[in-house]
Amino acid sequence: MSTIRRFRAMDMFQFNNINLDKYTETYGLDFYLSYLSSWPDLFNVAESSSGSLMGYMMGKVEGKGELWHGHVTALTVAPECRRLGLGRGLMQFLEDASENIYNCYFVDLFVRPSNKVAVKMYEDFGYIVYRQVLGYYMTDGVMPTENAYDMRKALSRDIYKKSVVPLKHPVNPEDTFFD
């Protein structure tokens, strides 16, 4: 059972069952707090009936003109809580907000191509590989340096689905920045 609600700074005191997973990064305080102060409605957490945290998703909106879009910054689910559809629920949350509140053209995310389970999951959610970003992931001593897939899903505002026409050539990380 789960409740999806806004993430609170106080949740950082109890998200260890999620963040102790080796693939989940524990960022500095300012990273979490800046998302909370900038996009409080796009940082959501799934909570169990006993009050323990099950997973969370950090998101934001950015870009200009037809590049105005929702972005998935982090999506993670505690090992015990996987295969329950929480990832889909949290993604749905961002997609709904991007579509209904922020009136975005698309939602995008970055993922390691080697994380085949995640790539498959996003494809199941309707995302396509829009482009490859060269050397996007730098090694942290545990995970290797790797390219990224920039995956996208068009929203209804993008009537002609222009945002999801895949690029034929890879791009550099600086080409992915938005003002």
Partner: peptide, 24 residues
């Protein structure tokens, strides 16, 4: 860091975080 983000919340008018940030 926390005061800096509190300033940010005030400047961006995301007031719902203020009480949470204070408690944190």
């Amino acid at each position: 860091k926390i005061p800096h983000e509190m300033e940010s919340a005030y400047n961006k008018s995301t007031y719902s975080n203020i009480l949470d940030f204070i408690e944190f």
